[in-house]
Design a protein around this nucleic acid. Structure first.
Lengths: 248, 248
DNA sequence: GAGTGGTCTAGACCACCGT
DNA sequence: CGGTGGTCTAGACCACTCC
């Protein structure tokens, strides 16, 4: 199940560790790409790929002709496009995360759930209904569903993030497709999240995928709007060939 | 001002055109990477980079050992992480886009606006207040602010997308940082968007950046929730080196 | 085993930045 | 001008899929 990490992944993880432990503080210039390559015993192309991932994630900034620099301000830690674990998002926002399990049990997959998880109808699923808190205040109510056979070990031992549990079972979550829907809290949600009925909430309906692109978890979440800021970083889409590109 | 397109960009645009014009219909397998390379007169690395962008954008799917395939169904979705122009998003969703200009004028940058746009307080800004429609129905109300000096030509000639206008002025929008806030429509917004007061809306507060990373536009938008689906594709963040990666 | 994408190398030249 | 990132090449070997 475990696969040897690539040179790119190893170098990227090493660089990130050095960024986090202060070896390269904010604003400083990294060694140039040739030197990083030589130092790590890899080619420059490998360095560029490793560094590129950290640039995309916001840790580093490249300046053509000048160098590669550690990003001054902290990257958007709670950016919806990159982060996947709310536990770490809350922690990195400087708040104390908490978790209240409202319900934990086994369900059979409905037709729709089976379709989205690409399993058979009736497949046994673990269902977790929880509330996340930040500094004691409810911020997210969520219902997660995942196939029991994706889990190794004792399902009762589910203290940590479901992402960690999945990872220990050989399913590293590599990405997700999420649908965003603004809603207003009806009475039950309002009570759970300790807000007034009618308060605007952000509903996120999400499918998580592992490294092979297989769906491994369904998450339905309701976020309190002002608990902490939800950000996304957007990139321009690729563009087709068009006329008029060649004239002066 | 015009910069020669790279081989990667040219090939990517050419492939995208062929995807859109039906040369490669849904589900079919693309020629393999060696053949694409030879056919286009570039190296395989260049092909991989061009194709990789289209995979990220969701047009293509790679299957290790099998080939690269045209993504099956193009879902009607509003992918907030990749697209930046709503005009084209609405078009690509198969609906007819419309635009109603409520107000267009010049304002001086406030302290907060100047800070976010990195210009001086009082800098003249173009302000556009508009409503986008899809098949005649209001879907987005927006207020855009951008420095007048970012614009070339006649400011009265603003029929097209602001992104196009910026591009023709030498500021290609390459990305954006957006804050998402679920809200409920107060009376004025409800009237403008033809919904009832209290209807949940998604508010997006955004800064657009050009290729150099300089902010070029502020956008405040309010989206009708059920007009079409708002999606984001999430990717796992890079991870630092950790213990326990080497055991069997 | 043949075909394909996944990773990596060593080296080249270009474009941009600052002095 | 030297240093840096940006682009690209030609080729190699590996890992996976399917026949």
């Amino acid at each position: 199940m475990r696969q040897r990490a690539t040179a790119v992944e190893r170098l990227r993880a090493e660089l990130l560790s050095e960024l986090l432990d202060g070896t390269y503080p904010s604003g400083v210039k990294l060694p140039n790409e040739d030197e990083l390559a030589e130092r790590s015993g890899v080619s420059r192309a490998t360095v560029r790929e490793a560094v590129g991932g950290l640039v995309e994630a916001g840790y580093l900034t490249r300046r053509h002709g000048s160098g590669t620099f550690v990003t001054g301000t902290l990257p958007r830690r709670h950016a919806l496009d990159t982060s996947v674990s709310y536990l770490s998002m809350i922690k990195e926002a400087g708040m104390t995360p908490g978790l209240v399990v409202l319900d934990q049990g086994e369900r059979e997959a409905s037709a729709e759930q089976a379709d989205r998880l690409r399993v058979s109808v009736g497949e046994p699923l673990l269902r977790m209904e929880r509330i996340r808190t930040a500094d004691g205040r409810p911020v997210v109510y969520s219902v997660d569903l995942l196939p029991l056979r994706c889990l190794a070990g004792d399902p009762a031992q589910l203290d940590a993030s479901l992402y960690n549990v999945l990872e220990q079972s050989g399913h590293v979550v590599r990405g997700a497709s999420a649908r965003l829907v603004p809603v207003v809290a009806e009475q039950r949600l309002a009570d759970l999240l300790e807000v007034e009925a009618g308060t605007p909430l952000l509903h996120i309906d999400q499918v998580d995928f592992d490294g092979d692109g297989h769906p491994v978890m369904l998450s339905a979440e309701w976020h309190v709007a002002d608990a902490f800021e939800l950000h996304i970083n957007r990139r321009a889409a690729p563009r087709a060939t068009q006329a008029g590109d060649e004239h002066a």
